[in-house]
């Protein structure tokens, strides 16, 4: 048995009285041939890697591989030291953790692709900051990662999480939906709210293109991660007040698939339009280190 739509997920939960976590484990035991304990071990290792990426990134202050960033997380952390955010500590953590992870990614540090490397800061920033601020027990931490993964899996059945397939909506948008749903689980909301949070997150990001400057996972990717993490938090806020997505979750994913198909290939990870072809980006591309780098390597 497999679950490929949110409707199937909702029905299964209501018919079997199983929790979303139980279902996630059962599906995964089935498809991966691993038992529950082995899966928990992998999830634990994954969460540990997420934390390590955050803490390495928080204290790092060095150029990224494409030389277009690497100092923003440090700026944000230093700023908060003297100017605490009016939105509180959780908000600060989400932003800093997302920046830390995606800068670490661009520095060739170790991260968890969740669902992709370009969107690697979104799920961890939400999960880890919630774990810390709300003292979530280990068992529930692991479960929340499975919930995030299950949401991502259902989306991926329709839209492959790759900028080249459907633009950034499929990468950062999917990550944001995963984070929103996982957060809803962490705060004990029911399946309707979990799914609704995911649907709202996707719905509001439809059409987001993938137009990285010079083809690197840096501009706009690094700063987009904290944006889309906060985006997940907004989705949860609305969903938990029982504000519903008028368009059901599965249809929102259909819309994402169609939007992705209609999106010009130039805006799908090809760096042939959008931010990648702005005046500044073109100048950067011409004056960049690439040619020098090539010739040095060829020496």
């Amino acid at each position: 048995m497999d679950i490929k739509t949110f409707q199937e997920l909702k029905q299964t939960i209501k018919q079997t009285n199983k929790s979303i976590v139980q279902i996630a484990f059962e599906l995964e035991e089935n498809s991966s041939n691993l038992n529950k304990n082995e899966l928990k071990k992998i999830a634990k290792k994954t969460l540990k890697a997420m934390k390590e990426a955050i803490y390495t990134g928080l204290s790092a202050k060095s150029e990224t591989n494409g030389k277009m960033g690497g100092f923003d997380c440090n700026k944000q952390v230093e700023f908060y030291k003297n100017h605490p955010s009016v939105f509180g500590r959780l908000f600060e953590k989400i932003i800093c953790y997302a920046l830390a992870t995606s800068e670490e990614n661009a520095r060739m540090g170790r991260i968890v692709a969740c669902p992709t490397a370009g969107a690697c800061g979104i799920v961890p920033s939400i999960l880890i900051s919630c774990f810390e601020e709300f003292d979530i027990d280990k068992e529930k931490q692991i479960n929340s990662l499975l919930v995030a993964g299950l949401i991502g899996k259902i989306i991926a059945y329709k839209v492959k999480p790759a900028g080249a397939t459907a633009g950034c909506q499929a990468e950062c948008g999917t990550a944001s939906a995963m984070a929103a749903g996982a957060m809803a689980y962490l705060f004990d909301y029911d399946i309707d709210i979990i799914i609704n949070a995911a649907a709202l997150a996707i719905k509001n990001i439809l059409g987001l293109t993938c137009d990285p400057v010079r083809g690197f996972v840096e501009v706009p990717c690094i700063k987009r991660n904290p944006f889309l993490a906060i985006h997940a938090a907004v989705a949860l806020e609305l969903a938990s007040a029982k504000i519903e997505s008028v368009i059901p979750a599965d249809e929102v994913i259909d819309a994402m698939e169609q939007t992705g198909a209609l999106m010009s290939a130039d805006l799908k990870e090809n760096s042939k339009a959008g931010l990648a072809k702005t005046k500044t980006a073109i100048i950067m591309d011409k004056s960049c280190f690439t040619k020098k780098y090539y010739s040095e390597l060829n020496d």
Binding site: R110, A113, G149, G152, V217
Partner: peptide, 24 residues
């Protein structure tokens, strides 16, 4: 359609910056 697993989505643990260009 190939089956998609949860582990496919929440992995790999990898060195950045790109799943296709680095991990691949």
């Amino acid at each position: 359609m190939n089956e998609i697993s949860i582990l496919d989505i929440i992995s790999p643990i990898m060195v950045g910056p790109s799943s296709s260009h680095t991990a691949g």
